[in-house]
Write a protein that binds this DNA or RNA. Structure first.
Lengths: 204, 204
DNA sequence: TTCAAAATGTAGTCATTGACAACATTGGAG
DNA sequence: CTCCAATGTTGTCAATGACTACATTTTGAA
């Protein structure tokens, strides 16, 4: 047992995510977190000035994880920009269900007010990734009549709205994971129809 | 100055909404709230067992306010079910911008876990109102190929997602109220195209 | 190699908070 | 009028976030 923990910052983030997943964001206490890890109650302050800074750190990490996750999903979807964007929307919902703590950290409005540079960078990178994919899908025939700002807002609002909804519903245990996933995919298919349908079969 | 405040419960809810609008949900402290109103620090406990109960009360009131607001908007929109549902979506966004505290209380996931009977009732009534309107719009020609569950989820996710997004963005003062409203209306028009277009002009 | 300074962790303290208990005041039902 | 339920007050306690002073370890430059 060394005096120095060695990797406290990362451990703090991971345990915090654990606790948030189990008890929600305001069930997280810096002191309980320190106890849980086995360091003194003020050790976390060396890495995160205050609670907001910790949540901002989590949010930054969450944005990075989500960005990587949806990028991977896009790549798995092939080359068609519309199929790629569709896959990114579905991946967002899977992420929210698989990593509820990170998704909650991501959505936490309080954090975005006093955003640290680190968070701004991660958030910006995430938004750029989504926006690029949205624009590509747009150019490839997704809703050609609309302007890109409207489409971007529409799709992110729908994807994040559905992800939030499912994430909360999943917490209540009233719905099965599989059912929520299937419903989520149908919803995303409404937002970004996969086979750029001209008319008739728009959706299913 | 009477010993009894006379209308403490309602005053608590109103001042809490004020504080939340200014400082966010976790900037709300029961004691500060009591000080603000001018009662003793434990007077609120007579009306709300704990902080969660207060937030649940706010959420219940918020659901009722939102339900009334969108119902009014639907009635103003006339008789066409699709136009009515479209108007309800737009009204949801206006509500989020006009009453940020109530909207935040409404969205607060922590509250819905240990929901009081009062909150469950209010939430249920709100959901019923929206679901009825969604089904009516569906029957009247909105996206006839999809099942009602998917459509309901899609539209509420998009509307609440956009409302949340705008509510948070408005807090940053980076965007003007009018611009957000205009963008929100375009988004809702994508979710629920107002003049039940068959094909060609789907959207604008 | 040495050693001073930076990084990291600890111990102690304080005001604030949420929750609870015991008590006081009010107003209304019988 | 009297009792009692509703409502409000004061007192208290443990937990928390934030701060300060101090201890230990690491590091890198002379």
């Amino acid at each position: 047992m060394t005096y120095h923990h060695g990797n406290l910052r990362q451990t703090l983030l991971e345990r915090a995510a654990h606790i948030i997943a189990a008890q929600g964001i305001d069930g997280l206490s810096l002191r309980a977190l320190a106890r849980d890890i086995g360091v003194s109650h003020s050790a976390p302050a060396r890495h995160f000035k205050d609670k907001h800074a910790l949540l901002a750190g989590l949010a930054a990490e969450a944005h990075e994880k989500l960005k990587n996750f949806i990028s991977q999903a896009a790549d798995d979807a092939g080359k068609d920009p519309v199929a790629r964007y569709n896959a990114m929307g579905k991946a967002t919902i899977r992420f929210a269900l698989a990593q509820p703590a990170y998704f909650k950290a991501l959505q936490n409005p309080e954090v975005h007010q006093r955003a640290s540079p680190e968070l701004k960078t991660a958030h910006g990178a995430y938004l750029d990734t989504v926006k690029e994919a949205a624009d590509a899908a747009h150019r490839a025939g997704w809703n050609p009549r609309e302007d890109t700002m409207t489409l971007f807002t529409f799709s992110t609002a729908a994807a994040h709205g559905a992800a939030t909804l499912f994430s909360d519903m999943f917490g209540t245990n009233t719905f099965a994971h599989a059912d929520l996933l299937a419903l989520g995919e149908k919803v995303i298919d409404l937002v970004i129809p996969p086979h750029s349908s001209l008319c008739s079969t728009n959706g299913a």
